[in-house]
Every structure is written in C-alpha cells, then in structure tokens.
Design a protein around this nucleic acid. Structure first.
Length: 271
DNA sequence: ACGAAGCCCTGCAAGC
DNA sequence: TGCTTGCAGGGCTTCG
C-alpha cells in the first residue's frame, strides 16, 4: 500500500533505467484501472523518451517533450524494471518497453491505480491543481496548519490525511506522526495549539524522511522499482500493533475506527 | 463550506 | 476442508 515514501522509493528505483531512453513499445494489457488507460497512449509515447521524471504527492509524473504520463499506484500498485520478454504476472496491466532492453511494468491487483496522459501544464491538471503542500517542503509548517485548522471540527487524523491540507500522509504515517506527537487522533483539528502543530510538523517530516531513507514500508508485497523490499515496517510504533504494549508507557495500544480507517493509539500518551 | 459516507477492486485471513 | 465475511485503504465523488 504505497504511501509517499513508497512512491518516492519507486521514483528513485526506476528513474536511471528509463530516463532519456527511447520508448519502443507500449503494451496495455488491461486498461481498466481506476479510469481507463487512454487508448491513444501508445501513439503519444512511441519513439519518444522521458526527459524528466518527478513526483507530486503520490503521483509519478513522467514527461516527454509533448506531454506528461501520470501514474498513481493506488492501493496495491507497484512499478518494476524488468528485462524485455520477462513472463507477465497475472496483474501486470501496463508496460513500457525501452530501447535498452528494459521494460517498466505496472502491477496492480486491485486496480485502484491510474495511468493518464496530459499535454497541459501539469499544475493545472484537475487531479493536481488543488493539492496542498508537500510535507517535506517549507510551506508545510506550524503556522500554515494552525491557520488552516482554525474553526475546523474534523478530527486531526482526517485533517492531516486530507490532500488539500497536505499531500502524502496516508493512514500508516498519520497514525505514526500523531503517536510521536502525543496527540489523540480524535481531537478536533481546530482545538490544537500552534506549539503542538509545530511538534506534529517536525515529527511527520522526520518519520517520512526516515521511511524514505529505509526504502518505504513493506506491507504484503510492496517493492521499490528495483524489486527490493522496504525496511520501515520494523520502525512502526503503533500501526499494526493493536493490543501490544505502548513503546513509551507499556499501556496496551487501542484500535478504533476513525472515518472507517484503522486507527491505533495510546490512550495514556496521546491526549 | 464543511463533513460524512459511498465506491472502485482483489487477496488474504479469520470464523463458522 | 470449503464456504462466507470482513478488512486492507487512496482519493475522487456524491449526498446531506
């Protein structure tokens, strides 16, 4: 389940193999992702090459001279670099073959992911136009969160998982950042002090950076573009640790459902 | 404007 | 053993 560190790890894993290398074949094996893969994609990409590959939120943006390929991994998606003619897995839905005998493959069992194409300025694309700041950018800071949250009644966990507030903080890292900051996930966003937002910003940044450094969190079968697993899972303090002792105080961690998302926290340490 | 709920989908695990 | 059920959850979309 890719969150920002997993997407960043994927970006780093695939870039060197495909940047500035000619695309010689585009294979759409199953176009039925979240939105259909555009059927004119092969003619848009064939004989072209990616001049720039970057990430915005959890979207991977692969640009040619003429437009940008937008890839989202959804819940279960992964990208891998494989040699040409590697046998397909059941859920390999999309493939770009390059002149260097490498192929970029999208595997996505649940098909929540997306592969789209745009010729427009990427910042104006409807999926990206209204996104909040990147959590690792200076725009994501205590003043920003404090101002934005005034009079908001929504709970803090949902608030920081809202991509209009800040991008890239999914369920796992929301749980972790709130634990590290001693904030109860149920607390209304509008009733948190500036000082506590400062703590939350610092912790969110620290946790995301560390997860990126370790290659993301491997749950089930996530692997980076090089096929190596992430190692962050062993660092998780609350997520997936229901009923286990709190690392701070030893109290059994509690699991609740908040906005239909699994939420694990310590009632003793998080107020 | 805000907040809550619905929906897309398959694999896996728990329960009967 | 084999079935059913529930959960995983990103994020757009719809409804109140």
């Amino acid at each position: 389940m890719p969150e920002l560190p997993e997407v960043e790890t994927t970006l780093r894993g695939i870039s060197a193999s495909i940047l500035n290398t000619k695309i010689i074949q585009v294979n759409i094996r199953n176009p039925n992702l979240r939105w259909p893969i555009p059927n004119q994609l092969p003619q848009s990409l064939k004989q072209q090459h990616f001049t720039r590959i970057r990430r915005r939120a959890k979207y991977l943006l692969l640009s040619t001279t003429y437009g940008t390929l937008i890839i989202h991994l959804g819940m279960s998606g992964s990208l891998r670099i494989v040699p040409h003619n590697t046998p397909y897995d059941k859920h390999d839905h999309f493939e770009l073959c390059f002149a260097n005998n490498r192929a970029l493959r999208l595997k996505d069992p649940r098909r929540f992911g997306a592969v789209l194409w745009t010729k427009d300025n990427i910042g104006k694309h409807h999926l990206l136009a209204h996104l909040g700041p990147e959590p690792l950018s200076p725009e994501f800071n205590a003043d920003y969160l404090f101002q934005l949250s005034r009079s908001r009644k929504v709970n803090i966990k949902q608030f920081i998982m809202d991509s209009k507030v800040v991008v890239g903080i999914g369920n796992i890292y929301a749980n972790e950042a709130l634990f590290a900051s001693g904030i109860n996930p149920k607390r209304a966003a509008g009733r948190i002090s500036r000082a506590r937002y400062e703590l939350l910003c610092q912790n969110a940044r620290k946790i995301l950076k560390e997860a990126i450094r370790q290659g993301g969190t491997t749950l089930r079968d996530f692997t980076g573009g090089d096929g190596k697993p992430g190692y962050f899972k062993q660092e998780l303090q609350v997520y997936g640790r229901k009923n286990q002792p709190c690392i701070q105080c030893g109290h059994a961690l509690k699991e609740i459902r908040l906005n239909n998302r699994s939420t694990v926290y310590c009632i003793h340490c998080q107020k």
